[in-house]
Write a protein that binds this DNA or RNA. Structure first.
Lengths: 143, 143
DNA sequence: ATTCTTGCAAATCATTTGCACTTTA
DNA sequence: TAAAGTGCAAATGATTTGCAAGAAT
């Protein structure tokens, strides 16, 4: 599952704009996250890029995804338990996991914040929302 | 932070109703989760109960909280990253974490489901909602 | 030349597993 | 006394750390 390509210069520019030195590895990992919207875990990113970059290490993938997440380029997902997956985060969105096929979907956050600015007097600044159920595709298959 | 006590018989009844054999350890861990609404991790539960039950093992705490979570008695929280905490789950609710004091608050889920029954054609059956910001108390302190 | 980045190997740390002992029905 | 629950010790496995080598400015 790969979407359109992005030029090397665009990737470099993107990293610099986010305050990150554009190393070869970082560019490749960024490209991977931008084009593979499959919510991969660290190992998947490592395995997929390893053929292209034989010297790539797990450490670098860990470090880079951690760095990207600090800089809000990606977000870390921890759906049910310990499995940590990463997602390119162009704009705030929610995640829907289908209990039938296991696929994770990105779902746009309603423009109007679902809970308002305050809840019980607490000021809301951000949110992580995970939805669970049966996806459109699996609903169709069983009916 | 301890709320009202619950009788041993009530705890036993509660476990049996949830299809769980009421062993001594399970009763104690259930009581702990019901009365300490502090979203503890496994180690905290273990440490706090260890003085009362010297033979208690981490394994049992792990097993029991996993069992409780399968039976929907508790829920597992994975706020930001790998820290897994458990919460007694009498009814569906959201969690709010204050970035100033670090405290986690339980927040009731609006009676009217915030996203409806379907979203983008996917059927929603449950949700995990984490809110982040500044809590009521910390807002008051700084103003 | 100095600073940043990478990547290996070792260390760490939470969690799980195997198994023997204990408890309970 | 058979089945279930417990707890120790060892195994696992993901993530982190220290540090030396390499790359970039």
């Amino acid at each position: 599952m790969k979407t359109e390509a992005i030029s090397n210069d665009e990737l470099k520019k993107f990293l610099i704009e986010h305050g990150i030195q554009p190393s070869f590895q970082r560019i490749k990992i960024l490209e991977y996250m931008m084009t593979h919207r499959t919510h991969p875990d660290v190992e998947t990113v490592y395995k997929d890029l390893h053929s292209e970059i034989p010297t790539l290490s797990m450490t670098t993938v860990y470090n880079t995804l951690k760095l990207f997440t600090e800089k809000k380029i990606t977000m870390a997902l921890t759906l049910e338990g310990t499995e940590i997956r990463y997602d390119f985060a162009p704009e705030p969105h929610m995640h829907f996991k289908c209990k039938v096929c296991g696929k994770i979907y990105d779902v746009p956050l309603p423009k109007k914040h679902p809970f308002g600015e305050f809840i019980d007097g607490h000021k809301i600044e951000s949110e992580d929302i995970y939805l669970f159920g049966v996806c459109k595709k699996c609903l169709g298959n069983s009916n």
